[in-house]
Design a protein around this nucleic acid. Structure first.
Lengths: 348, 348
DNA sequence: ATTGGCACTCAGCCCTGGAGAGTGCCAGGA
DNA sequence: TCCTGGCACTCTCCAGGGCTGAGTGCCAAT
């Protein structure tokens, strides 16, 4: 094996080194691997291979006389090519099931899921709530709060409740509001919010000339609230941030502070996640691969989940690059599939 | 001045020491104070006074040859007797006003307030949302989500929206639900949720014998949801946790972890706050005075706010005991009064 | 190609000694 | 009686030096 490609033995050694490091957190030396190695290579031979792996950028030494530590590139190779698939243990599946079965609306369930992820992996778990615009209209209701303030309550097919307050230019009576609500439901029941908004805009153009005040008000009100809804931030549930502090890998307070700041600024977090997550399938982002430097020493395992056939939200795990990738990936994959199923075919 | 009581000069010195320590974070020595002191006492005299203050438990030395540091008792005395009242600067008042004026419902405003508190004090800011049970009914609506699942939406007089999903024992049609909602509103509009619940329970006893299904269902449904509502956790908005990490006062990771855990477990946090907050007025809890050991090195400035004449929620600041008490107290007091006013006379 | 051997490097630890900050106490002065 | 200057003392902090243990890189032998 020279500098070009990784032969089979090199891969085996690399895997063993990373596995070891993930569990111990200590730089791993040639002797350690030599003892484990099935074919019984001597420490000296391992050293040669290690030197090669280092040259290729998969490993590095914290200092001259220490063992080796994986680089981000090393983890990347490990995740892409060395990882053996893993089942989610039965006990974990049960904990997830329990969280999903829980009482309360979707927000409560998502919060509970983030809690379970955090608790199983001992890392930071997160769930980003589904995109509102994909919600399918089931019921809409307008309630006058007095003097031109109107509250809109919208229920989607899976029982998620969206609400929004806005001001209108003119006073509208409660009866009229009821009628407008009924009209919108009867007309657009079963459509997604985006579809409805488009349909309303279309109709507004067509009907402009006419003077059916009820209808025009319905259109105005509907578009106004759907617009607001689209702009509303997605909710983010983050749990287990204190786990990050446990990790001995971190000692730099200033960096730590920036990480916590990122967790707190939910909007920024979603943006970062949006940048890296695809429309399909699980992604792993490791250390320096992150677009945001605040996460430069963290690894992210994230997967989108769907509502119907549209990607709607995402969930995952954040932790130090020294992370049990296999476990985290299995869990995140499992939950994202489960959640997609639940949201697509609503319970009952 | 001997061991018994603090004479005027002792108080002056103590105040100066604490002021100094709050700003520098370094143990303060006799020379430093001697230089500041208006009456021009020598360092040696200051030392004698310091020794007395230490004996009385207001100060301590981290080690023999260091300056003095306030004890929790010292801070307590400072807060109770040495603090000169302070105005909230105009610029801060404006930032608060802006947060309150913001678009969106109450939750958004409260979240924004916690953010402003954190940003002004550079500490952790928090707001606990008002107790649901004090809300005054304006509108209630039941929506069937199919197969015995029912969503209740309740709007109170200040425009806050509460919603809750629950299962019923038998299917109820949407028309019936509408009727039930209308009935409850017409009957109990303007009452608080607690009052309503009691009235309903009362009525249930009386009407037990009769067989008006609509009425009995209304009663059952109403009590069920109001019950659930009372049990619902109060929301807590916590912001600026990362500021805690900036503080050089903390270095013990394990303790830090426990603090962050406490911030994350909102329920536990509310319980702790409930224990210390009174029904009226601002409270300061310093270090070891805390009932919960997790906060043993933190200081808390907290005040309840009211809806009408009932204490409803609370808000405040959490930070190291080395905190700018005057500023924090002024700000928390100011905001709590402002919030009480807003919630009592809702912005039309 | 693999291995045992050997020299080398470096973090971690403990010890030491000097500098600096601050104290406690004492004796002299208003 | 209270205040103050002076002085010895204590203790942290830091830098330097020596030792140990872990682990490496390289070389010559198999």
């Amino acid at each position: 094996m020279s500098e070009m490609e990784l032969d089979n033995r090199g891969r085996e050694i690399l895997r063993e080194i990373i596995r070891n490091f993930i569990h111990s957190g200590e730089p791993v030396g040639s002797r350690t691997i030599s003892k484990i190695h099935p074919e019984g290579l001597s420490a000296a031979s391992i050293r040669n291979i290690m030197a090669d792996l280092e040259e290729m950028g998969y490993l590095m030494q914290p200092h001259t006389s220490a063992g080796r530590v994986p680089t981000d590139r090393g983890y990347r190779y490990y995740v892409d090519s060395l990882l053996t698939g893993m089942e989610v243990p039965r006990s974990d599946r049960e904990r997830v099931a329990e969280a999903v079965r829980g009482q309360g609306g979707l927000p409560e369930v998502l919060a509970e899921i983030s809690r379970v992820i955090s608790s199983i992996t001992h890392q930071v778990g997160f769930v980003v709530s589904p995109d509102h615009t994909l919600a399918i209209l089931k019921h809409i209701e307008f309630i006058s709060l007095g003097s031109k303030r109107i509250l809109a309550i919208l229920v989607d097919r899976s029982g998620v409740i969206h609400n929004r307050v806005a001001d209108t230019s003119e006073e509208i009576s409660q009866e009229e509001l009821d009628k407008i609500g009924k009209y919108l439901v009867s007309e657009y029941h079963g459509k997604t919010l985006t579809q409805i908004r488009e349909a309303l805009l279309q109709k507004m153009k067509e009907e402009k000339a006419r003077f059916d005040t009820l209808l025009s008000r319905a259109l105005a009100l509907g578009t106004q609230f759907l617009q607001a809804q689209e702009e509303a931030d997605q909710q983010v549930f983050v749990q287990g941030t204190s786990n990050i502090l446990q990790q001995p890998d971190f000692s730099d307070m200033e960096e730590m502070r920036r990480i916590f700041e990122t967790f707190e600024a939910k909007g920024r977090l979603v943006k970062i996640l949006d940048e890296v997550v695809g429309s399909e399938g699980l992604r792993v982002v490791i250390g320096s691969e992150h677009p945001d430097p605040a996460l430069a020493h963290l690894a992210l395992v994230v997967s989108p989940y769907k509502v119907g056939d549209q990607p709607a939200g995402m969930l995952g795990v954040l932790g130090p690059t020294r992370m049990e990738y296999a476990r985290a990936m299995a869990l995140v994959g499992y939950i994202s599939k489960l959640l997609s199923r639940i949201l697509t075919v609503p319970p009952s």
